[in-house]
């Protein structure tokens, strides 16, 4: 599967990574290598095999519906860069 520069920029944007122009060709090579491995995996005949969703052959353990956490806001917010009126402050985002 060929990866274009546009694909690469898009992936970087989705992952919030800043790419310098000079990095692109090198990265494309590395990506092509990874995708080659995936192609190899895809080529395996998996008919009749149940899709694997987890590496461990176990089932989820569940918790009872009980409130076990207490208010630790002061401790959590002591390491936050900026807080006000109990809120975490972040650069303004409006869709």
């Amino acid at each position: 599967m060929a990866l274009t520069d546009t694909d690469l920029r898009r992936l970087a944007r989705l992952a919030r990574l800043r790419l310098e122009e000079s990095e692109i060709s090198g990265l494309r090579e590395q990506f092509a290598g990874i995708l080659g491995l995936i192609d190899q995996l895809q080529a395996v005949d998996t008919r009749g095999i149940e899709p694997l969703s987890h590496a461990l052959d176990l089932e989820a353990r569940l918790r009872e519906d009980v409130v076990t956490e207490t208010d630790q806001r002061a401790r959590f917010q002591s390491v936050a860069p900026q807080v006000e009126e109990g809120l975490y402050l972040v650069p303004k985002v409006i869709e």
């Binding site: 918790r63 519906d65 009980v66 409130v67 076990t68 956490e69 208010d71 630790q72 806001r73 959590f76 917010q77 009126e85 109990g86 809120l87 975490y88």
Partner: peptide, 24 residues
């Protein structure tokens, strides 16, 4: 309508002070 969150033991009650029910 659960008492606690789907993946943590924090309360889901409506109207608490901001972030008082947000656990680790």
């Amino acid at each position: 309508a659960t008492h606690s969150k789907i993946f943590s033991g924090a309360s889901t009650a409506f109207g608490a002070a901001p972030n008082a029910q947000a656990c680790a």
